[in-house]
Design a protein around this nucleic acid. Structure first.
Lengths: 153, 153
DNA sequence: ATTCCTGCAAAATGTTTGCAGTCAG
DNA sequence: CTGACTGCAAACATTTTGCAGGAAT
């Protein structure tokens, strides 16, 4: 069984890039924190724990490279910070996000909910879709419960 | 018939803000360029043509205010720049965008295509949706035609 | 030797803030 | 007079770049 990291290594090689120790450390952090949506700074601090000599610029360059190769997705929730998110393997499309406007938590949805919508857009607007980004802003179930309890009192 | 600007004025007043000349000039630019997706800098330069004494900070403060009052939407297409887009009057939801990865053009879709999807999300994920952002990345019809012609040669 | 990659520092970019002055009620 | 608003400049945060040195082939 080939590991995820080895497959990423091959992806890099097939575009004539190397998996240097710094790049590997960065990828490992992203793998370990797959559920999160880390900023470049976050990644930098976590990588620094394993490889203290790494520079922030290298992290940026690595994340840019991984974005180019579609290994990670660069997203932006409206605060001024870019966040980086590993693509699920084999996922043709970007996954969707549920951002809670109360607590700021971010959940992911893997389901491809947009097939019908994309058909409509491609047909009606004659637009050839390559990718999409869908984010819902609202209130997560935890904050809903919290509000209910407060109302009861 | 009440003008759009007057209605915006009332919206400001009802939250105890004034429609100062600078704010009015800013809103007028947004009205005139409703189809575009202007950055703060873009807005600043256009406002400066009418009111050269205005400062960039004022434009930022005005755009922030208008965003707060949901008169404009602040959007981000992944380059590091925030763009500002007048909300259609009465639109409960953010409209959608088609971003062309060839020429960078941005088209808007007013149709609410997400009603079904939102029902699924609210039910399956127990998430109370307040707003959404949907952007498709792909190739617009103009660039598709261009590519076809190149292929024919 | 050549090419790619790195760390550091400096620069660039986009946005926010502090402050003194202005304006309207 | 008071509070809201403004322009300017400085500060700030994030990201990118230039460069000299290093590692791999």
């Amino acid at each position: 069984m080939e590991s995820r990291i080895e497959r990423i290594k091959k992806q890099l090689h097939s575009s004539s890039y190397k998996l240097t120790p710094q790049r590997e450390a960065t990828v490992r952090v992203l793998l370990e924190r797959e559920e999160d949506h880390l900023s470049a700074e976050d990644v930098y601090l976590l990588v620094k724990e394993k490889a203290p000599e790494i520079g922030l610029a290298t992290v940026y360059r690595t994340l840019e490279l991984l974005t180019e190769l579609k290994i990670v997705d660069k997203i932006n929730f409206g605060d001024g910070v870019s966040r980086y998110d590993l693509r699920k393997e084999g996922a043709a499309h970007f996954h969707h996000h549920l951002v809670c406007i109360e607590c700021g938590s971010v959940a992911e949805i893997e389901d491809d909910l947009l097939e019908d919508v994309e058909q409509i857009v491609e047909r009606d607007f004659n637009f050839k879709i390559k990718d999409h980004r869908l984010t819902f802003h609202g209130i997560c179930y935890r904050c809903q419960e919290k509000e209910q309890k407060e109302d009861e009192q």
